[in-house]
Simulated scan of single mutants.
Amino acid sequence: MDAKHQVYLQGDQIYTCSECHAHLARNDDIISKGFQGRHGRAYLFKTVHNIALGPKEDRVLMTGLHSVADITCTICQSVVGWIYLFAFEGSQKYKEGKYIVEKAKISKENHWIQRE
């Protein structure tokens, strides 16, 4: 039987998988909250943990053609978003190597202390 190892993130503002509550990302790793996913609003993250990449595919998204791979939670295998592998348009190159995580697929963990 293959044991599932996961990273536990430190901090007071952690996003988790909404299905199994595996730690996915820190609030500090958000680049933008102004993205659209398949199921509504999505966040662009610079780093996401406890995920596996699906097969690479080219998709026409709102901002043009991109090579992407779906990302799934390594614990429960829920698709939580995708990674941008390649952007065909120069203005979209900043997304390469970054992750889209759908807001509907994540939950807030820990205290979420209001920062000023």
Results as ranks from 00 to 15, higher is better:
58 D>N: 14
62 M>D: 11
13 Q>N: 12
77 Q>S: 14
29 D>R: 01
3 A>G: 04
1 M>G: 14
4 K>R: 07
41 R>P: 12
28 D>M: 10
19 E>T: 07
3 A>K: 11
20 C>N: 04
77 Q>T: 11
106 I>G: 00
69 A>D: 01
95 K>T: 01
91 S>V: 11
108 K>Y: 03
106 I>W: 01
74 T>A: 06
85 L>I: 15
54 G>F: 08
69 A>E: 06
52 A>R: 12
115 R>S: 14
17 C>T: 11
22 A>F: 07
109 E>C: 11
23 H>E: 03
39 H>E: 12
38 R>K: 03
75 I>Y: 01
31 I>Y: 04
2 D>M: 07
93 K>W: 09
45 F>Y: 15
17 C>K: 01
21 H>M: 12
48 V>C: 10
55 P>K: 13
21 H>T: 14
41 R>G: 15
19 E>C: 07
81 G>L: 00
74 T>N: 14
74 T>L: 09
17 C>G: 10
79 V>Y: 03
115 R>G: 12
39 H>Y: 15
1 M>L: 08
115 R>F: 12
47 T>K: 13
87 A>H: 00
77 Q>P: 00
58 D>H: 10
8 Y>A: 06
83 I>C: 01
27 N>D: 14
61 L>I: 14
99 Y>E: 00
18 S>T: 10
81 G>F: 00
59 R>W: 04
110 N>R: 15
90 G>V: 05
26 R>I: 01
29 D>T: 11
24 L>R: 08
8 Y>H: 08
6 Q>A: 05
40 G>M: 00
45 F>C: 04
6 Q>H: 05
105 K>I: 02
44 L>W: 04
17 C>N: 02
55 P>L: 06
51 I>A: 03
24 L>V: 10
95 K>R: 06
29 D>P: 02
112 W>L: 06
108 K>D: 09
11 G>N: 04
40 G>A: 02
108 K>I: 08
80 V>C: 02
36 Q>H: 10
25 A>F: 08
42 A>N: 06
50 N>W: 06
30 I>V: 15
45 F>E: 00
54 G>M: 06
93 K>N: 13
35 F>C: 00
77 Q>H: 12
77 Q>C: 11
26 R>W: 05
45 F>S: 01
70 D>S: 05
29 D>L: 06
85 L>R: 13
93 K>C: 08
96 E>P: 10
18 S>Y: 01
79 V>E: 12
54 G>H: 04
109 E>G: 02
101 V>A: 00
53 L>I: 07
4 K>D: 05
52 A>G: 07
6 Q>M: 08
66 H>L: 07
26 R>M: 10
76 C>S: 06
100 I>L: 14
44 L>I: 05
101 V>K: 06
87 A>E: 08
5 H>A: 09
33 K>R: 13
1 M>Q: 09
10 Q>E: 14
53 L>K: 02
22 A>M: 09
75 I>N: 13
